[in-house]
Amino acid sequence: MPDDSNAWTPPPPPPPPPFSPRHQHPSELGDEEPLATPSLLTGAMTMADLESTVEAGEPEDRFRTWVAIAIAVVSILGAVVAFSATLTEQDARRLDQQGIQDASRQQQIITDLQATVDEDLRYLAPYQEHIKAAQTLDAQATALQSSDPASAALLHAQAESERVLARSWQGFFQAALPSATDATAPLKYDAKAALQTLENNNSDLQQLRPDAIRDQADTKHTESVNLVGLVTLFVAALLFLTLAQFTRPTIRRMFAGAGAVAAVSGVALWLVVLKLGA
């Protein structure tokens, strides 16, 4: 007898699909309202919202563009000011060096002229001796002129010899000649006036102006410091403009205004510094 346990059994039918209104016919929905279907009106509203969003974003894009242009302009101005500060500092250092050289050269010339005056002072004593000797001999000759003309003539000859020697010493004086208030007064040599005369007649010394050069160097140093300060002001303007580019819309205009004020102030002060340094 065959075994019924090995007989083929058909599979059970699949379960019915879950209830879904989409599978119902409209007549089967009864009083229920059919589901809303997308319409062209909904699509039109979506496009309008998108256009309004784009239009609202356009001012922000223009704002960012103007801020980017301002950043570029301020960067160029800051670079130009920094370059001007570097050139001004180089000029100041050059003037410092020139002032030191001129002062050294001036002192050397004055030292040489002072040595000339000192040398004149060394010639004063022998020159004065010959002058005094000639005066003494002339006085003696005058006293003997009536009583002993021969001796008087001899004394006059000796006095003339002393004057010749005095004139030979006179040729050694380079700065000034000794002078006397009268024939009997001792000779005087004004060393200060002699030095002043030598300085006035020295063309190399007249061309040297170390004090004026140092004043120019100080002015250039001050101008360089002011320009460096202006560079700092332009850096602050760049900082504010950068914050205006990346911060929230509620505060970015405040940063943009601060950057604009700093940049305009920097340009105005730059013009003032250039005018004062001219």
Score class of each variant (00 low, 15 high):
185 A>R: 03
46 T>Q: 03
1 M>F: 09
118 D>I: 14
251 I>P: 05
38 P>F: 10
58 E>R: 14
275 K>Q: 15
118 D>Y: 13
112 D>V: 01
154 L>V: 02
34 P>E: 01
42 T>F: 06
161 S>P: 02
217 A>D: 06
88 T>Q: 04
14 P>T: 04
99 G>M: 12
194 A>C: 08
233 L>N: 04
20 S>Y: 03
228 V>I: 14
180 A>N: 02
93 R>V: 11
43 G>F: 12
43 G>Q: 13
187 L>E: 01
239 L>Y: 02
88 T>D: 01
238 L>V: 02
18 P>I: 00
148 D>W: 04
236 A>G: 00
64 R>A: 13
171 G>C: 11
248 R>N: 10
147 S>K: 15
162 E>D: 01
51 E>C: 09
128 Q>Y: 02
263 A>I: 02
39 S>I: 09
210 P>K: 07
179 S>K: 14
49 D>N: 12
113 L>S: 01
83 F>T: 10
228 V>R: 08
184 T>C: 02
139 A>F: 13
161 S>W: 08
169 W>A: 00
196 Q>S: 12
1 M>Q: 09
277 G>Y: 13
14 P>V: 01
124 L>W: 06
3 D>R: 12
177 L>W: 08
187 L>N: 00
193 A>C: 13
190 D>A: 09
229 G>H: 12
137 L>F: 13
70 A>R: 12
277 G>Q: 14
269 L>T: 04
217 A>G: 05
114 Q>A: 08
213 I>M: 13
73 V>I: 09
187 L>A: 01
123 Y>C: 02
34 P>M: 01
226 N>Q: 15
82 A>V: 02
213 I>V: 14
83 F>Q: 11
70 A>E: 15
235 V>G: 03
51 E>M: 10
53 T>C: 09
69 I>M: 14
60 E>P: 06
7 A>W: 06
24 Q>D: 03
271 L>A: 13
236 A>M: 02
248 R>C: 07
199 E>C: 09
253 R>Y: 12
131 I>K: 10
249 P>K: 11
171 G>K: 15
222 T>K: 14
266 G>V: 03
252 R>K: 15
197 T>C: 07
174 Q>V: 05
272 V>C: 14
210 P>N: 10
192 K>S: 15
223 E>F: 03
57 G>I: 08
213 I>C: 12
124 L>K: 12
157 A>R: 05
59 P>H: 05
267 V>Y: 15
99 G>D: 08
269 L>I: 06
156 H>Y: 08
153 A>T: 00
260 A>F: 15
246 F>D: 04
21 P>T: 01
251 I>F: 11
48 A>V: 12
155 L>Q: 02
173 F>E: 04
187 L>Y: 00
276 L>D: 15
108 Q>I: 00
125 A>K: 13
244 A>S: 15
